[in-house]
Amino acid sequence: MSNQDQDNLTDHEYDGIREYDNKLPIWWLATFIGTVIFAFIYWLHYEFAGGPDLQAELKIEMEQLQEKTGGHGHDHGTAVAVSEEELLKLMTSADTVSNGKLAFTGKCASCHGDQLQGLIGPNLVDEYWIHGKGSLSEIHTVVSQGVPEKGMPAWGAMLKEDEIKSIVAYIGSQKGSNPANPKAPQGEKVVNN
């Protein structure tokens, strides 16, 4: 212990523990005062000086998002009309159908069954349809916009358009496949389709 240290020592002694009375480290004090000033300014800015609240910040974020998607809402997916012909043509592309199968297995099979035989959701390869008459463009609309009240998600908000089209093409390609353990028919029988 140097002499200087000795000078600095307080006369406190507790169970053999002594205490120096060193000054507060200046960088420590500066940090403390700095954070207090920051806190004060931050508080004033957001609580009194009209700094944006969280809802206002969200509004700006959502507007930026709208611009990206070209004004389409998100809750119900994108409602881009797709022609029956385009989808029929995609059905003939082996690549598209196999991509569709992959996506279907990942996203759709848990409710519609891995053979499309229906499970939680309806059978997709029988002759009965609930929403529309089973045309590819109608299936496309249901996949994109969903049927929220029945628990069918609006996949348009989540998947890329190409992916949705490939899923629709895959569903179309499986028509009449007669899987084992099909779910009982639901909806209207559609003949001649």
Binding site: L9, T10, H12, D15, G16, I17, R18, E19, Y20, D21, N22, K23, L24, P25, W28
Partner: peptide, 13 residues
């Protein structure tokens, strides 16, 4: 301070 056998650095702090 017990284990190191040293006085505490700063009472003020």
């Amino acid at each position: 301070p017990k284990a190191a056998n040293r006085p505490v650095y700063s009472y003020r702090l």
